[in-house]
Design a binder for these strands. Structure first.
Lengths: 129, 129
DNA sequence: CGGAATCCGCAAAGATACTG
DNA sequence: CAGTATCTTTGCGGATTCCG
């Protein structure tokens, strides 16, 4: 990665931090990863995504897709049929994100029991409040 | 909401998704990764963290540390000196997160120029609004 | 020094209704 | 079908104050 903030803080170090954090927040976004994973095997239509991602609102799906399109992670293709259909597909860049994200997702899966146990234990201490 | 009774096939799948997303959101958290990275080389005191992580408020540092402690990613140690000093250190679990996170951070670093170019291009289209 | 408690603004997220 | 527009609500996060 980068050397942690140990010695001198250069301006560029901070810039990198901010920019990196901004990109990381995309992964922590409530819906982005869901969308990306759902596009992992090929193009998917708007309504399919909405059905696949349980709990997402129309609005949030639109916004999430718009952000991912803006960042160049997916493409939006309109088919001028009646009624119109629009499908979304990962770009090459988007597909390269698939792997790092799944590494992290696997970490989450693997350590989930441990984390939940920790939470329960923490809840039993006075500090939980 | 949860699945409104479409059979039992979705129950566990949804649970996994929600739980995984919850853990992933920790990575997307504005400050968590910064804290984790700063603890990568050993215990650090509260005030050192506050100075090292530029822009973080006392409150948010406290909250972030509390959450990470709750999840078992770091430990909090109080030294009963006067004035008191408290230091934080990654747990074993916390250290295992260091690697997947840096994979993702490296992805972010590497593709940042590409993403920023995409954003600029997007801003020049009408869709940018 | 390392917090906890309180207040508050603002932006993000949800619900609803309407449209090309 | 695939959105947009609008309104309301939630809750993150900053600033400030107080305490052991």
């Amino acid at each position: 990665m980068k050397s942690p903030g140990y010695g001198k803080m250069t301006g560029r170090y901070d810039d990198d931090c901010v920019a990196t954090r901004e990109i990381l927040s995309l992964v922590g976004d409530k819906w982005s990863v869901m969308v990306i994973v759902n596009l992992g095997e090929g193009p998917v239509r708007f309504s399919e995504l909405k059905r696949a991602i349980e709990g997402i609102s129309q609005r949030m799906l639109t916004l999430t897709l718009r952000n991912l399109e803006r960042d160049g992670l997916l493409t939006r293709t309109v088919h001028p049929t009646t009624p119109p259909s629009v499908d979304y597909a990962l770009t090459k860049l988007g597909r390269t994100l698939l792997e790092p994200v799944s590494v992290l997702a696997m970490w989450a899966q693997r350590h989930r029991p441990e984390i939940e146990r920790s939470r329960e234990a923490f809840a039993r201490t006075a500090r939980a409040k």
